[in-house]
Design a protein around this nucleic acid. Structure first.
Lengths: 236, 236
DNA sequence: AGCGCACTACGTACGGTGTACGTAACTACG
DNA sequence: CGTAGTTACGTACACCGTACGTAGTGCGCT
């Protein structure tokens, strides 16, 4: 039995402290905080095992004692920002308002940590703070008379819409961040190309629509409207 | 003027054939097809400039004559699979049915090319086939009496829900693909951990819900229900 | 008390990535 | 016909995740 075959494990199932050996120099919270700091400052792609280790002040491979795979580092990060929700002790009783308030918290959190939507995945659904989040959301829905499955579908759909819409907001806002040229240039190039395509006459409906020019888009309004529609579709 | 400062450009704005010089050995369609073949067979992470070049039978750096950045390769791929839609000459007149049919085509396409949801982003919205797709969708909505902005919001929301839900389906189905252990093991580990957490009593509502055990989930049913809700929220 | 072992720490190394740069061959235009 | 711009592609650099080996440390058991 020279080498274990890389035992599959959820990182949350591992005890944070082992019984034997020297006591760990860092906690999971330390590691997650360092990674989150990096991602906030330089983007998710800047989060590498080397850089996180350097941020912590330890050797690269030492990090692997705490985080067996990089994917687990992502899971730590996701859980860390999920702790930023302010979950009231008890829901207000108006489940629609409670869900909306939660959605706005989520949106604000993602704007603070713009890399979060890229990590959104059903895979990260079992972390401690995520479980607390789901449980609280379910408590908001105590007054919503529906079977458990429908409540979960509501939660999934709301979270999906939040992620999708905020991801769009962030993608358009931060598109130029990683590019060596300015956002204005990029924007101009893209719209000029779009205009040239529309001018071909192949897309008459888009041409007519964009001719109206409704001015700048109110992103938060779009977000609220989409969310309202989703809740309406369950409310009726 | 020794080196241009990496002029920003949308790849679709570039002419595929330059006037001078030897004629290119490959078309964009060739390149996209090679990349799609690779992604289908080995996953999106296997799509590297080197491997695509090898698939085409040319040197790695030759590929950069056609595709200035890797991001552009993704854009080619996305456009390539967007050509797989079967867009009828004229919509049926029942816009709800037409949108649903389109959504099922999208879902099937993403199950054929499971890497597509990972590429979904507002950034890839100007490719030729994407423009055709949007224009056709707008034509379906000719009978839907609403301002242009609301039609675009409908399209955005439908596409968002499709992507989110199919991404979930794929993520759970393919989770074990890249792991060195089996999907059954992974699944067992995860559910065992979840059960242990629920058993702590900290999540009474989840405990109650999962105690019901409604049997296997009908993924297509969930998809259809979600989509139906979205359309309902616009229909009323 | 003391032995053994699980754990921490970390340097080295391997195979992979995107892509900047330099050079050689080729062709369509002025 | 020359020449400028394009294609082709080998080399090289910085960076990535992580397997592996070695050394040191201190808890738990006998």
């Amino acid at each position: 039995m020279v080498g274990r075959p890389a035992v599959p494990e959820v990182i949350w199932a591992r005890p944070e402290r082992a019984g034997r050996g020297p006591k760990p120099a860092f906690s999971r919270a330390d590691i997650a905080a360092a990674a989150v700091r990096l991602a906030d400052a330089e983007g998710l792609d800047a989060v590498s095992m080397r850089k996180v280790a350097a941020e912590l002040g330890c050797g690269t491979m030492s990090l692997y004692n705490y985080v067996p795979r990089k994917e687990d580092l992502y899971e730590l990060m996701f859980d860390a920002v999920s702790s930023e929700y302010d979950l009231p002790e008890k829901p207000s009783g108006d489940w629609r308002a409670d869900i909306l308030a939660l959605a706005h918290q989520a949106r604000a959190m993602m704007h603070r940590h713009t890399w979060v939507p890229r990590l959104m995945s059903p895979v990260y659904g079992f972390s401690p703070n995520t479980l607390a989040y789901i449980e609280y959301t379910l408590s908001c829905l105590d007054g919503f008379d529906a079977p458990f499955g429908e409540k979960m579908e509501l939660i999934a759909m709301v979270n999906g819409v939040i992620t999708t819409y905020v991801a769009n907001e962030i993608a358009t806002a931060e598109r130029g961040r990683s590019l060596p040229w300015s956002e204005e240039q990029e924007q101009e190039i893209r719209t000029r190309y779009l205009i040239s395509q529309i001018a071909t006459g192949r897309y008459p409906r888009m041409a007519a629509g964009f001719a109206e020019d409704p001015g700048p888009i109110d992103l938060e309004g779009v977000f609220d409207r989409a969310l309202g529609r989703v809740l309406d579709s369950f409310d009726g």
